[in-house]
Design a protein around this nucleic acid. Structure first.
Lengths: 243, 243
DNA sequence: CGCCAGGTTGATTTCGCTCAAGCAATGTGG
DNA sequence: CCACATTGCTTGAGCGAAATCAACCTGGCG
């Protein structure tokens, strides 16, 4: 049995609850030892940034717990919230693998524990275990498909329809569904964050939310959302759907 | 005479001129033999489609010569031209690696020779040569970064600025630069195609082109473009740039 | 308390889309 | 060779969704 290099204070990759859902599930015991020994675990509080646009890419970040938002902004202060990363997700992989500096920034939204794995270790693992590369390839391909869809949506759907689509995605990934068919969502996202996720202004976001409430499609109170029936959201995107 | 799906007359991977610029440059002789024997080469004429949205992904397509456009559309007829693929580029890899059906369609813009490599061969190569996976990973990561940038540009830049940016990219990839600092571009892209590349309507595209001509930023005649100085284009995107 | 960030609401403007017409180039069939 | 469709592009007019500008709330917090 190989020696396990445990981190005295931090989490241990061998016992990591989320590992099975990550790209790392394909590693064997030796490889796990390598990554476990090399990783650096850290806790972050909401508002802290993990990396910023322009930083050089030194490794990747594996979210063990919490919630992280990945943002991209320009010089004029415009910004989009590209995606949310939850436990099991890896952020910062894009820049490292493209061999570029970070083109987005990662900001912690909920108290989180994040493991940093330096690029030397990552490359070592990638060059010796093809399965790991294929996992990341799968992930990147999936993300790329999502990005393409978003580009199309931005030019073909209204703010209201884009928001409906966003709610469906968020409920699917982070929400809960009740027996009666209703759904709930509770995320630490400000109205500005929601606006930045669909590429609109905070004012338009506010008005859209109000209209959806008036139409009985969704009920917002603070940062929690209640959706009576998902069909209503679906028909916002494609008016023909569900008939 | 019907198009021949034959390797006898088709290109040979060993002598393929563009191979050094593709992901396949990392293959050794044995692997080249595998891919060379397994590939199917075909010539396409402008207007022909290589694959369509919704098709199942059976392999990948390597462009040996010509030009191919990759498009994504929705039910209402809206569409975006996601990118152009030139010799050395591989299309259809995203869907195959994400394990999804095609989420975009590939349409030939110039007479092209394209090699199809079936998924069995691709997977065989990927699982045995980590370098190949890493190459594709690099490519996917780069594409993902481009897509993210496009999402930001769509919400933060005007049609005119997006078009200026597009011209810069197209000149960089497909244009020629003269000694006097001027640049030329000649692509088989209709105004509608150009519009679809920046997510706008053909009418707006037409007006934008006219305005750029009036301002002396670019000269359009048919499908060829002459740019006196690239600085003008740069300052369209960031008014502060170049001062 | 005052201050400030986040949020809502209202008024106004504008960019770009839609609708519609005209035009040039190309193709087609009689 | 000509009438005619057809297709792609341009141009004009009008409209509308959403951005911007500007108040004005709120609730937390030093």
């Amino acid at each position: 049995m190989p020696t396990q290099h445990t981190n005295a204070t931090g989490p241990n990759c061998f016992t990591c609850q989320v590992r099975e859902k990550t790209e790392w599930c394909v590693l064997d015991e030796t490889e796990l030892n390598l990554i476990n020994a090399g990783k650096v675990s850290r806790k972050y509080l909401p508002g802290e940034t993990i990396f910023s646009e322009g930083d050089s890419s030194e490794g990747i970040y594996c979210i063990e717990s919490g919630l992280v938002g990945v943002r991209k902004s320009d010089a004029d202060g415009n910004s989009v919230l590209l995606f949310l990363a939850s436990p099991g997700d890896t952020v910062g992989y894009r820049s490292l693998l493209a061999g570029e500096e970070h083109k987005s920034s990662a900001e912690v939204l909920e108290p989180s524990t994040v493991c940093f794995i330096d690029q030397t270790t990552v490359r070592e693992l990638l060059t010796h275990n093809p399965s790991l590369g294929l996992r990341f390839l799968q992930r990147a391909s999936k993300d790329l498909g999502d990005a393409d869809e978003r580009i199309l949506h931005n030019v073909s759907l209204s703010v209201r329809a884009r928001f409906a689509h966003l709610l469906l995605v968020l409920i699917d990934q982070h929400g809960s569904k009740s027996d009666d068919g209703s759904s709930n969502l509770n995320l630490p996202l400000s109205r500005q964050d929601l606006a930045a996720m669909i590429g609109t202004s905070p004012e338009s976001m506010s008005r859209t939310i109000k209209k959806l409430e008036d139409d009985g499609v969704a009920k917002f109170s603070g940062r929690s959302v209640h959706i009576p029936t998902l069909e209503n959201l679906l028909s916002e995107i494609d008016p023909e759907a569900g008939l």
